[in-house]
Design a protein around this nucleic acid. Sequence first.
DNA 1: TCGCATCCTG
DNA 2: CAGGATGCGA
Length: 874
Amino acid sequence: MPDHDSTTLLTRQTKRRRVDIGVKRTVGSAIFPRARETLLEAMNQSHGPDQDGDLSLVSHGHGAANSDGEKSNVLRKLLKRANSYEDVMMPFPGATIISHLLKNNLGKNGGSDSGFQGSGALSSGGSEIQAEDACSNSSRDSPSDCLSPGPPLPPPSSSNFGRPLPPSNHISHTSSQSLSSFDLDRLSDEHLRAKRARVENIIRGMSHSPLVRPSGSDHNQEGNRENENGSSNSNDHRGEDVSHNSSRRGDCPSLVRSPGSRGGVVGIGEVYRENKRKQRLPQQQHSFTQLVCSRQEQRQEERRQLKLQLEDMQQKQLRQLQEKFYQIYDSETEEEEENIVNGEVNRGGDREEDGNLSEDSIRSDGLEERHGDRGRHNHDDLSELDPGLFLDRARALLREQALIDGEMEEDADSREEEERNGERVMKRRVVAGGGGGSGRQLAETLKQELNCAVSQVVDTVVKGFSSPKQNAGHHHGCHSSTPAAPSSSNSSSSCPPPFGPLPPLTPESRFGGGNLALNLNGEGSPTPNYHSSNQRLHCFGDVIVPSPLDSFGGLSSRLSGVPTPNDQTEALPLVVRKSGSAVETPQLPLALALHHFASLGFSPPSFRHPFPLPFMSYPFGNPLGSHGAGGGYPSGPKDHSRVSPDSMDITRETVSLRTKMASLGGAHMGHHHHRQSSPSHHGPEGLSLSLIKSECGDLQELADISPYSGSTIQEGLSPNHLKKAKLMFFYTRYPSSNMLKMFFSDVKFNRCITSQLIKWFSNFREFYYIQMEKFARQAINEGITVAEDLTVSRDAELFRALNMHYNKANDFEVPDRFLEVAQVTLREFFNAIVAGKDADPSWKKAIYKVICKLDSDVPEVFKSPNCLQELLHD
DNA sequence: TCGCATCCTG
DNA sequence: CAGGATGCGA
C-alpha cells in the first residue's frame, strides 16, 4: 500500500504549494523509482520537516521570551537587592500608567520586537508592571537604561540621579569580607543592617514618591569612588550637596552621607568610605535614628529628582511607544529611524547639557558612562534644589523633547502637538515655579501634563487598534488646538492625509493619532510620514480602510485638488457594488482616484503605493467589465454580497488582465439581456466567426476605450460567471464549447472568452482530480483495500473540500449526481493507484475518459443570466 | 497546423 | 485562476 502513496511527485509537491495534495505528476512518476517514492511518502506522512521547523521556531520564540522575562526578573531582583545600580527601577505612578499603556500595546502587538531598540525595555517594563502592581514597593527597571540593547534612549533630561544610592548588600559584603577582623565584621554587620533598613526605607519612600529615576550609573560612580574616594569625586560632591541641602533644611545635618548614598563602591574604596562615614556617625547604634532623618531628607531630595525622572521616563516611554509603533508599522524605515533617534537623542542630550550642565557628558558611547555623567550633573543641579534651576531644567527638558521628537519623527503634526503641550506645560511650570516656587507644585503640574499627554497618546493609539471606526474626538484638555475630528470621517477618513501641516490633522485620528501625537516635526518630509502611515494602515487592512486607498486618496486629493478621500464616496456605490466584498468601500474611492489620476496623466504605478495588482485591477476591471453589473445585473450584487467569503476570491478572479481586456472588449456582463440587441462595438451578435476573430485583435483598441465611455460595448466574464461556471461543474466536468455558449448566453463569445471559460473548467477539473487522487491515496494509506468501501457523502471530507472550492458560500445545493460522480472518480483513482497504474505517466487519462462520460445535463436554469439569483435564492 | 487538454508555475 | 509549455489527436 505504501507504494501507492509514494506516487507523489516531488517536483510538483514541492514546487506547488499544494503540498498537502498528494498529487502525482505524470512526469515525476515516470522518473522516480519506487524507493524515492517511499521517501516522499514518508515525508508526506510525517508532514515534513517544515512543521517541525515551525514548531521549533515557535518554541524558540517562546523560550526566548521567557528567558528574557526571567532575565529581567532576575535582574530586577538583583537590582532590587543591591541598589548599586541606579538604573534599577523605581515605582512611580506615572510609570505605572505608561507601563500599563505600553503593556496593552505590547500585548496587542505581541511585543515581539526584540532587537528593537526599546523593545527589550518595553517588554521588560510590561512584565514588571504586573509585579509592580502586585507589590507596590517593588522597583521597576528603567527600560532603556537597563535592558535595552539597542541604542540608548535618551535619558535626556532628567538624568539626575543625584539621589544617593544605598550601598548594595553584595558590595558591602564583599568589603566586609575583605576586612576579616572581628570588629570589622561586627561593624559591617551592623552596617549591613543599617543599610538594609535604609534601603527598605528608601524603597518605601520611593513607593510614595511620584516617580523614580534610575540614573546614575553605577560603574562610573564606582570607579570614581574607587579611584578618588571621595571628595574630589563628583559623587562625593553630590553627596555633600545633599547633605548641605538637608542641613539647610534642618532635617538631619548629622547624616551627611545620606544613606546608602554611595551604592556602587566596591572593595577598598567602599570600606574606606564606610569608615569615613562611621567616623562621622557617632555611634552605629544611633544609626537608625539618624537613618530615619537621613531618609526623610533623602526622600525629599529624591522626590524632587524623581519628579524630573518621571518626566524623563515619560518622555522615554513616549519615544519608545512611538518607536514601537514605527517598528511595527514601518519596518522598512525602522533602521533609519533608529539611527535618527540615536542621533537625535545624542543631540538632545547635548542640548540639555548645554542648557544646564557642563559638557563632559559622553555621547552615545555607553549608557553607563553617559548616565554616570548625567547623574552627576543632574545631581549637582538638582541638589541645589533651586527652583530656578529646576525650571531651567524643565525648560531644557522640554526643548530637548521637542527637538528630539521633532527631529526624530519629522512629523509635523505630532510635533506641533507636542510643542503645544510642551509650551503649555512650560507655562504652567513657570507659573507654578514663579508663584510658589515650590518644586512640588511644579512636579505636580508636570506630572499631570505628562500623564495627560501620555494617556492621550496611548488612548489614541489604543483606540486605533481597538476601534478603528471611532474617531478619537476626545482629547481632553490636553490638546489645545485639535480641531474636532469630523464625525463623518469614517473608516477611510480616519487617516489624515499623510503630509500636510499638522494643525488640520486631528491627533485623534486613529492610527495617525498616536503617531502624530508622538511625532514632533513641523514640516517633516512627507515621505517618512506618508510611508509610515501607509504601513500602519496596511496593518489594519482588515479594518475597512485599506491603506493604499487611504493614502492614495490623500495623495489624489492633493494632486488633483480634490478634497479628501472621504468626499469621493459618492459615485462609488455604482461601481463597487458588484464586488460585494468588504473591501468595497475602499475600492470605490480608489477607482475614482485612479480615474482622476488617469485623467491627470498619472499612472497608478507612479505612486509610492505599490498597489497590489488585485486592488488596482479589480476596481478597474469591475467597473469596466461589469459596469452595468451593479445596476443591470441583478444577480451580481446579491450574489456576491451574500457570499462574503469568496468575495476576495472573486476579486482575484476577475482581475486578470485578460479578463479586463475582455471586459473592455465590450462584454458588459451585466447586460446579458442587452448584449445581443445592444449596438456593440463589433456588431450585434458578435458570435460570427469574423467578429470573434476580430475581437481578440481589437482588444488593444478596446483597451483604449474609456471605462465609462461605452458601457454597451463591454462584454466579458464576471465573477458571477465564474461562480456560475463553478456551479455548472457540479453537473458537467467537460462542457463543450457550444454548451458554454448556451449557458453563458449573456456573454459575447469570442476566442478569448471561450478559451477562458474552457480554462476555467480545466482548472476546475484539475482541482477536482487532484482532490480525488489525494483522497484516494489517503484511503489507501488508511488501509482501505476495496474500492467499494469508498463512498462520497455530503459529510465526506472530500465532498467538503470540493464544495468549498466550487460552492464556497454553500448557498447552492449540490446535486446528488455529483456525489455519485465524485464517488466513481474516487474509486477510479483508488483502483488505478492500487493497481499501480500511476506508474504510467498518462495513467489519469483513462480515468478522465470515464469521468467525462458521467457528465449530466445542466439544468435549464443555468441558461438564464439571472440563474445565480434564482439558484441561490433558494 | 490547429484545437484541446494537461501539467506546471506564479 | 491565468499563462506558458507541452503533448496528442485530427
